[in-house]
């Protein structure tokens, strides 16, 4: 929302004088269970960043810094670690993310989520999630159906990185809306579904969704470090001690957590099934520990079917994004300035 509201400016005419913005790409978390996702995705991402005009920090330099400071976190880097990397590499932004789905079946399916961290303020300033199934492109008589995962992955990553030009991102660093936004912590979702990474995937998509909706989302690594300092691994629930820590140390106004009950891909094609998702989430006031809102969301790909399978959602990642957006709207709405009014 904030992203779309920002006027686009251009470097045209001054691009030669101004040094381009620098970005370091941290290794993405791979929740897909397929090692190819990392290999294929990494090279595509680097290519897109270069095309967008970013100066990308060489991977070897970044790897040395990560090794030197023992930074292992992929999707969950902390503010302290961001500051260390920033000081060592003099970088403007960090790109973190995850390959959520990379299913190389007859009709492939992929999903990717990413976030950009402003190194100066150690804040998440932009995010996107993109997903598709080869079936989404079937069109008339299935002629456009994509059966190659490489082609599909290229389309998904192109879409995800479409708005990632340095001008736009650098303007977000000083955006007063972002700097004054309410802070929210996403405690990783608990998972009761057969997909062992469903909790992480849903948490990752939710973080992207909240950033898009204008919230100041606390870096997941900070939450992880705080809960580790209290000798616990928190998922799907949160006690008052940790809540207090989030409110006092990380200045969180609200906390979101929940559980994933169902997260299953479908099998596309004429006789295929469609994906299904079921989850719940709740918004908690971090200062009082009071649950402010709670919602249970669930849908199948066929829920949006109109006629002869048109309108059916075949992509689990897309269905997840849709459900997460509904969840966010139900429990957190748009940015909350005074939740007491809404309660």
């Amino acid at each position: 929302m904030i992203l779309s509201g920002i006027a686009m400016t251009s470097f045209a005419g001054e691009g030669s004088q101004r040094p381009s913005a620098t970005i370091a790409v941290l290794p993405f978390a791979n929740y897909s269970g397929n090692a190819d996702a990392q290999q294929v995705g990494d090279s595509l991402i680097l290519r897109f960043l270069n095309e967008q005009g970013w100066t990308v920090i060489p991977r070897d330099s970044l790897r040395q810094i990560l090794r030197k400071h023992r930074i292992r976190a992929k999707n969950g880097i902390s503010a302290e670690q961001v500051a260390v990397i920033s000081a060592e590499l003099s970088v403007d932004c960090l790109l973190i993310g995850s390959f959520d789905i990379y299913d190389d079946k007859e009709i492939p399916e992929t999903a990717v989520s990413f976030r950009i961290i402003d190194c100066e303020n150690q804040r998440l300033i932009a995010a996107a999630s993109s997903a598709a199934s080869g079936e989404d492109y079937a069109g008339l008589f299935g002629m456009g159906r994509i059966t190659s995962i490489i082609d599909l992955n290229r389309k998904v990553i192109t879409r995800a990185f479409a708005d990632l030009n340095p001008t736009r991102i650098m303007s977000l660093k000083a955006d007063p809306d972002i700097l004054s936004a309410k802070r929210i912590a996403v405690v990783p979702f608990d998972n009761f579904s057969p997909d062992r990474n469903a909790g992480d995937i849903i948490s990752s998509i939710l973080i992207s969704e909240l950033i898009r909706a204008g919230w100041d989302v606390i870096l997941p690594g900070d939450i992880f470090q705080l809960s580790r300092s209290q000798n616990r691994v928190t998922r799907g629930e949160i006690d008052l001690d940790l809540m207090r820590g989030l409110a006092e140390k990380l200045k969180a106004d609200y906390v979101i957590t929940g559980s994933v009950f169902d997260f299953a891909s479908g099998t596309a094609g004429v006789d295929g099934s469609t994906p299904k998702i079921e989850l719940n989430g709740r918004l908690i006031d971090s200062r009082t520990g009071r649950i402010l809102s709670i919602a249970e969301i669930g849908s199948r790909g066929t829920d949006s079917e109109l006629l002869f399978r048109s309108g059916t959602c075949y992509s689990l990642g897309k269905l997840a994004q849709k459900n997460i957006r509904n969840l966010r709207k139900k429990i957190a709405g748009e940015r909350i300035t005074n939740f007491a009014d809404n309660d």
């Binding site: 006690d239 908690i284 520990g289």
Partner: peptide, 11 residues
């Protein structure tokens, strides 16, 4: 009624 956050109950 108000419900206690499950994490607090577990603690």
């Amino acid at each position: 009624f108000d419900i206690v956050e499950p994490g607090e109950t577990s603690r």
